[in-house]
Nucleic acid binder design. Structure first.
Lengths: 294, 294
DNA sequence: ACATTCTTAAAGCGAATGTTTTTGATATAA
DNA sequence: TTATATCAAAAACATTCGCTTTAAGAATGT
């Protein structure tokens, strides 16, 4: 199969649009002769007349018109990919803050998608507590943050609302014990709400693990030594949601909010926001995980 | 703006798909060295790593994946336009027979569309009487014919049904005269039907012009010396449909039929058939003309 | 250790692609 | 009509590009 040449196609389009070889040559920073020869070679390659040269002005033949459509598309594709791959606008770094309890399972997928779309932009993931993330965002240390809150501050955007739910070891019975044994992170934002709920239901409780380490919590819970609470749909693989049938209080809804979407900063930024919206605003996080597991 | 090279992109795609420079070089009928150099130049042009060369096998980087999408599209566009413009399948001649009374206004538009889509296919237009066209088609002298008939033969396709209508000079009064003065072509298929209708309505009539020339008929009618009948929607610019309010008999419906569509001969043939279908099967020929006049 | 595969490099050669200059054709004005 | 300006094509020439061949070296998996 013969190959066209983008340079030549660009000249061809310029000639068709400017209606003259000399004029086009001016735009292209080439001599009239060079453009003329390009056109000649193009016609030879295709074995066709592309121009009607009767008359002083140069007009396209039907074949020329047809080529023009393709030439425009090919030049546009060329320019688009060159821009995407080399333009400074498409390289840089974005800092994304995400509470660690909602990193899984959505964020890895988002990062993957984003990297495929903007391979030259580095996403610095800052996984921490909602409280700290909001502080970082306020300082400008994070470009975009997600939060898990019961309310929402000004400038935020609610992506979805999910109930907090009880999680424990698969098939475990720790949730039947009284006092209820809890495992909590030291900074956990959910803690006061959970405690409130338990007190209101007159359920005695006891914090048996208090740590900074999520690993420790997960290990304790999966050993059925305590229960924990998480946003529905973010349970890690070896922990299950507890079907307590009303034995434990229902916990309040939390919303997953996004800060930093305002003001259409640039295409790259907006794309990341778009991926995040789609990942969380989707029907159901559990359903999403099912899809991801396929 | 830098320009990519289709040859190089083709190699790039081949390497990405075959997973190796040597293998790709084989497909491309180039030496391994040449392909390697092409890739190197491509990476230099973009200032990017496109391949992850750690490991024996050659893998794409994220940038490479992104380029691959565009490269495929550009190569596909290249091949498509080359095929369209140079493939023998897209050149040749089609003979189209059309009764001269329905040439206007649809056929010129169809021919224009078709020429834009297949500039290297010549359409030989044979404008004649339905009877002769059917004979030509039966002999194989026409590839496709349109006819105006009250019925339809086997192998035909009815495009639309239109009433025959009375036409005369704009604002003319020839249609009030008795005997009614008629202008007819010598071969006109409508004639027997018209005569039947008039006889049935007890309207005396008289053929004042009998000729082979459409021009003569049009001239006579536009001078208000006689009336004529045509398929609705095919009136030429200087003749008008007569609003006789029942003073003249209604004339039978005629269908516009197409022969030669059967059996999916080839893409070019089918495209012409498609244009014809769209031109005549459209809601109303009068409406079409209004669109064309814009 | 061996085979495979990719990278890099150098030399040679032909084709491609540009520039400058010239020629020819066509429209516009005198 | 003749003169003139404009534009496209052609001719002559120089340069660069890109492929082949050949060969050496590095990385990797068997």
């Amino acid at each position: 199969m013969r190959n066209l040449d983008i340079t030549t196609l660009r000249s061809f389009v310029a000639v068709a649009e400017s209606g003259g070889v000399t004029r086009a040559a001016g735009f292209l920073h080439l001599t009239q002769s060079a453009v003329s020869m390009q056109l000649k070679r193009l016609e030879e390659l295709l074995g066709l007349d592309l121009f009607d040269r009767s008359g002083r002005t140069i007009a396209l033949t039907a074949s020329g018109e047809q080529l023009l459509v393709f030439a425009r598309r090919m030049v546009a594709l060329n320019d688009e990919v060159i821009t995407r791959l080399t333009d400074q606008a498409y390289e840089g770094e974005i800092t994304l803050g995400v509470p660690h309890d909602i990193v899984y399972p959505a964020i890895p997928r988002v990062l993957k998608q984003f990297h495929a779309a903007f391979p030259r932009v580095k996403v610095q993931l800052d996984s921490s507590y909602t409280r700290r993330l909001k502080a970082e965002f306020a300082k400008g240390a994070c470009d975009i943050i997600l939060t898990t809150e019961t309310g929402m501050d000004a400038g935020g955007e609610q992506l979805c609302t999910k109930p907090l739910c009880w999680v424990g070891a698969p098939g475990g019975s720790a949730w039947r014990q009284r006092p209820l044994k809890l495992a909590f992170g030291r900074q956990c934002t959910f803690r006061p709400r959970v405690v409130e709920g338990l007190d209101a239901a007159d359920i005695p409780w006891d914090v048996v693990v208090e740590t900074e380490s999520d690993r420790t919590i997960e290990a304790t819970v999966s050993a059925d030594l305590a229960v924990h609470t998480m946003i529905e749909g973010t349970e890690p693989p070896h922990l299950d949601r507890i079907e307590h049938g009303g034995a434990l209080p229902d916990l309040p809804m939390h919303s997953i909010n996004l800060y930093g979407a305002g003001g259409a900063v640039n295409e790259v930024h907006d794309a990341l926001v778009g991926f995040l919206r789609r990942a969380f605003a989707a029907p159901d996080a559990t359903a999403l995980r099912a899809v991801a597991n396929r």
